[in-house]
């Protein structure tokens, strides 16, 4: 997952975006393994975010347009404690199903972080300094996992990403199963 650069439009969110905002509990009833039914997770991805916080700085920007199941935004920029709350793997899964490839947040809640990596859904980068107040929804950014740099193509601003550390090997393997198969004897 970490081979090439990731380029895409960003959707900007604030602090403490919990899993109920990422995918509200009422939607946790669709079959995640069914290619058709799982599209519902794309349709409702980030539908729980309060309207004035949805796509900062202005808000009121739908992450997924009505009638669509994928988003025009491929990268999420967020503040602290992204993915707090429940352990539902539906949260990182819904982001992937909606077309998100990477998140650049100040910090993550631990279960979300694990799920994003072990399930091989999205790459949870940590930014070295807060950026969500200076980036705007709709801008284009480029993430280079090799040099750990995030560049705002629209403004030219460059920000350092923290090294992924031990998570990089699991992400590169595509999740916990392939990681264990290639590095441990019990699979």
């Amino acid at each position: 997952m970490l081979a090439g650069k990731i380029i895409g439009k960003i959707y900007v969110l604030g602090d403490n975006i919990d899993t109920d905002q990422i995918i509200p509990a009422r939607h946790l009833v669709y079959d995640l393994e069914d290619p058709e039914k799982q599209k519902m997770y794309g349709k409702y991805c980030l539908s729980g975010v309060l309207d004035d916080q949805a796509g900062l700085p202005d808000g009121r920007i739908p992450f997924v347009l009505p009638g669509k199941t994928t988003s025009e935004f491929q990268i999420i920029v967020a503040g602290k404690n992204f993915g707090c709350g429940s352990s539902r793997e539906h949260a990182p899964a819904s982001l992937k199903i909606a077309g998100v490839q990477a998140i650049a947040a100040e910090s993550y809640a631990r279960i979300f972080y694990r799920n994003a990596i072990d399930g091989g859904f999205v790459i949870p980068f940590e930014v070295a300094k807060s950026i969500y107040r200076t980036f705007k929804t709709g801008e284009t950014v480029e993430i280079d996992p090799q040099s750990n740099l995030l560049r705002n193509v629209s403004t030219g601003m460059t920000v350092s990403l923290l090294p992924l550390g031990d998570a990089a090997a699991i992400l590169n393997a595509g999740g916990i199963f392939n990681y264990a198969r290639t590095s441990h004897e019990f699979l």
Binding site: S87, P92, I111, D118, A180
Partner: peptide, 25 residues
């Protein structure tokens, strides 16, 4: 597979919530 699995720590055990992929593992 539930974040409030940590409740069981009241009994002096290590208890933690995980996602579906981890649980399948």
């Amino acid at each position: 597979t539930d974040s409030h699995t940590c409740t069981a720590g009241a009994f002096g055990c290590f208890a933690t919530g995980i996602g579906n992929s981890d649980a399948a593992f």
